[in-house]
Simulated scan of single mutants.
Amino acid sequence: MNKIKIIDSIMGSGKTSYMIQKMNEAPTDDKFIFITPYLDEVKRIKEACPDKKFIEPKIHSVNGETFYKLDSLHKHLSDNKNIATTHALFKMANETTKELIYSGNYTLILDEAIEVVKQLNISADDLDM
């Protein structure tokens, strides 16, 4: 069964600190993917949870082949690593990402709401076209 827990409180009230505490108290075999809007928060999670050894997906090359961040994310999920990354990467998630999160029995933590609908400013000429 999948459970959803929402923690809604004003900025600065300790939501992220609470999640850091929960992750640090979790059994060693519990796996997490922590999604935040800010790279500084990715760094914070990595430093605040040293025993969990969070990994940040990166662009890298192996034998002249380039692997992009989504490739890196999928590799780390396949390897059952704890992952800290940004909303920007998570917005690129696809069916493979979803399957790897489910099959790895990850706890997904979304720090701050993700903007999924974006308003576009269009002109009358755009509408006519």
Rank of each mutant, 00 (worst) to 15 (best):
E25A: 06
P27W: 00
D29I: 13
D29P: 06
D29M: 08
D30P: 05
D30R: 13
K31F: 06
F32T: 09
I33G: 03
F34T: 05
F34R: 00
T36D: 00
T36A: 09
T36Y: 14
T36S: 14
T36R: 14
P37E: 11
P37Q: 11
Y38P: 12
Y38W: 10
D40G: 04
D40R: 15
D40P: 10
D40K: 13
E41N: 14
V42C: 03
V42E: 00
K43E: 04
R44G: 04
R44N: 08
I45R: 12
E47A: 07
A48H: 02
C49Q: 00
P50F: 00
D51C: 00
D51K: 09
K52Y: 05
K52I: 03
K53P: 06
I55S: 09
P57Y: 02
P57M: 01
K58P: 04
I59P: 02
H60N: 06
H60E: 10
V62F: 04
G64P: 14
E65I: 15
E65G: 06
T66G: 01
T66Y: 07
F67V: 01
L70T: 13
D71C: 11
S72K: 03
L73K: 08
K75P: 02
K75N: 02
K75H: 03
L77W: 02
L77D: 00
L77I: 02
D79Y: 14
N80C: 05
N80L: 07
K81N: 12
K81V: 01
N82P: 02
N82E: 06
N82L: 05
I83W: 01
A84D: 08
A84L: 09
T85G: 07
T85E: 07
H87I: 15
H87Q: 07
H87W: 10
A88V: 13
L89Q: 10
F90N: 12
F90G: 09
F90E: 05
K91T: 12
K91W: 15
M92K: 13
A93L: 14
A93I: 12
N94G: 13
E95I: 14
T96N: 15
T97L: 11
T97Y: 08
T97E: 11
E99N: 07
E99Y: 10
E99R: 12
E99M: 12
E99V: 09
L100R: 02
I101W: 09
Y102G: 02
Y102T: 08
S103P: 05
S103W: 08
S103R: 14
S103I: 04
N105M: 12
N105L: 07
Y106I: 09
